[in-house]
Design a protein around this nucleic acid. Sequence first.
DNA 1: GTCTATAGCATGATAGAC
DNA 2: GTCTATCATGCTATAGAC
Lengths: 245, 245
Amino acid sequence: MIQDFETFKAELSLSKEEICRELYQENTDKIRIKKETTATRNLARIIDSTLRLANSKGFHAMTLRDLCSDSGLSMGGLYAYIRNKDDLIHLIQSHGFKLTRRTVLQYIADIRDPVEKLSQAIRAHVFLSELIRPWFYFSYMEAKSLPPVEKQNAVATEREIETIFCNIISEGIEQGVFRQINARLLSSLIKAMMQDWYLKRRKYREQGVSVEDFANQIRDLLQAYLLPVASGKLAVSHKATSSAT
Amino acid sequence: MIQDFETFKAELSLSKEEICRELYQENTDKIRIKKETTATRNLARIIDSTLRLANSKGFHAMTLRDLCSDSGLSMGGLYAYIRNKDDLIHLIQSHGFKLTRRTVLQYIADIRDPVEKLSQAIRAHVFLSELIRPWFYFSYMEAKSLPPVEKQNAVATEREIETIFCNIISEGIEQGVFRQINARLLSSLIKAMMQDWYLKRRKYREQGVSVEDFANQIRDLLQAYLLPVASGKLAVSHKATSSAT
DNA sequence: GTCTATAGCATGATAGAC
DNA sequence: GTCTATCATGCTATAGAC
């Protein structure tokens, strides 16, 4: 059960080092370095630089020389960690997907009420995307650069995330808590809105919108639409947290 | 006043040739070719190929050799139309922005009712993005590749589009037609949803969602949220066109 | 107005010293 | 385990024939 963003962050405790250690262990076959501590440290630098450079100028526009001078490694050194440039994409994407699915499912596991379940799923997704935003941004923008097999996998995973939301809504409809609407289409729109948080975060920052405001806004919008006329609308009104500009 | 998509398409009558002719006239200083008919014809081929290649593999991953063999021109021939590779980005982006603003403003010009005005603005934007989808997709994905000055311009234009929606909502609030909510934040979410149509159109196609279904779904979602409890919800219900899955 | 041929250069990748 | 030096490739861009 997620309270606020800071609690979520503390609970999950996802340090860069921690992520990269997991990442190393999943890729020991591709990485030539045997000592875990040095491998993790350098991997963290490589990925950090890749995300910064690729997210600002695009992955293809980033040269490996750029990457080396930013991360502090030499060309030779870098190639102890990757087989070729495209390996970098896979390295970053694969882990993000697993983490997202795991996190969202974990936070909605033992919630029954559809209204609350939907709200929690949104919070889990939006909060996680805030926590490792460069990862999300990169995965989204460089999906087209993936080799065909992995691209298919990426599309499938994305659909899976969307299905989680679709199921929550469908259950709500079956239970008579939500109105009868197109659950699949609405899930797609939910995903589109959530994505905007990591694709255009600067904009929201300038508007003074916090990550919690953002999640709440999506929740309120959905509840107004999903809950039936009589009971719903009133229940929403006193819960709504957004204010007029 | 927009009826259905087909009528919209016919009214606007935006052929590729037509767009490229306008584009030629706006860039006579950069293009070395003097005869309008040949220039327009070749420009159409160049842009067509650029959009296809860049949208599938990314602009930087596309080489000018790719572009030449796809468009049928030679390297030398191509350089009569552009100064360098980056010129292509500008060429494509600049025109799309103008077209979007012009179209949306045109279709909401003489509508008073905020509910209807919002609905029409959404339709105009979504329908236009359907009509010249490759343009929209390209502009979105390659925005980061723009030189700083033009990048700033792109961000400003996008904000302008969003402001159109913000103003419609604000007016609705002032008139007491809409509830008091954060108009700016909601506009951003509207934009996020509309964007998804051209970023992930394949997905919607697979779901069997038409461009009209899509625009209607956004409209219904917004009306449920914006209209006040008593009168609003009922008015929406009989208008809603979406169905359960 | 369009082509072929080529200059000039930066890139991804590797070999081998330390 | 990391570095420097170097290779081969393929890129953007141009010069000059037709």
